[in-house]
Design a protein around this nucleic acid. Structure first.
Lengths: 143, 143
DNA sequence: CTTGACATTCACATTGATGTGAAGGTTTGA
DNA sequence: TCAAACCTTCACATCAATGTGAATGTCAAG
């Protein structure tokens, strides 16, 4: 497919698809007329790239780990050097740190939300009970 | 404590600490001489801010959810509006998406690493066995 | 009292991810 | 043949997060 379709299917601007290519994250083939030609698998790849970028990784890092987390799990023997292995382990560590941080924040936020909703329910109930004795309740909480 | 100590203890530049304050993420007291005075709790707070920013959240969002995930879990009743609740739920959703994406990537990377290490071990063993018959093995894989 | 290590504000520079638009080539269909 | 809808490259703009440094104030120790 050409760049327009890929852009549409991934919700990514053409500009960015070209940028990712420039950064070495994507290597579409070229039609004889010079148009970029993307394979079907590129859709997932782009989505993965965007996910990682949105999670705060720089393209430099995405480029490094992308080949290692792509679908056809091929082992590149050139990756077997101690330096590469150490690098990959560092990146795994960093990913884990990020995940932990985000998870803690998400759970805290979730807890707050639960408490908030519980409080709102309690307020509504109180209002309902009060309505039995006094009319005209003014709780401004609708779903 | 003053800005220098906080900077040191959080690994954050003074410049950034002032920037976070400007963005409304931090509100240190002021000494009579104008120096910023940070409480002990600010250390954790700064670390949390940095974690979220590094995870790709903009300061705008961090500012919104920070009060909801801070230590003394106080419910702010002004948060009980449907809009605020919806906003918090959206952010929770976004956090979850990020976590899932990062987790998938981390696990894929981890799997790749395992395979890589296994392959390296296999290569080493093969080299050792071969050494029994032919000397001078040339596998360049040391720990 | 002066020096050095802090602090302040303010302004400008940089970097990475992105948008925008100009100038032009290709393909397709009326 | 012409227009619309693609595509190309290239250059410049923007925005947020961050660095750098100037000009200046405060404070503690010699």
């Amino acid at each position: 497919m050409r760049i327009g379709e890929l852009a549409e299917r991934t919700g990514t601007s053409r500009r960015l698809l070209r940028y990712y290519e420039e950064q070495g994250l994507l290597s579409p083939a070229r039609s004889p007329n010079g148009y970029r030609e993307y394979s079907e698998a590129m859709v997932d790849r782009v989505l993965q790239i965007r996910g990682l970028l949105e999670a705060g990784l720089p393209t430099r890092i995405v480029k490094r780990i992308l080949p290692c987390i792509s679908k056809p799990r091929t082992i590149h023997f050139s990756d077997a050097t101690p330096e590469t292995i150490a690098m990959l382990e560092r990146e795994r560590e960093r990913l884990t740190k990020r995940i932990d941080c985000l998870t803690r924040s998400r759970d805290a936020l979730s807890g707050y939300l639960d408490a908030l909703l519980a409080a709102r329910r309690a307020a509504q109930e109180a209002a309902l009970t009060a309505a039995g004795t006094a009319p005209a309740a003014t709780v401004s909480a609708e779903a």
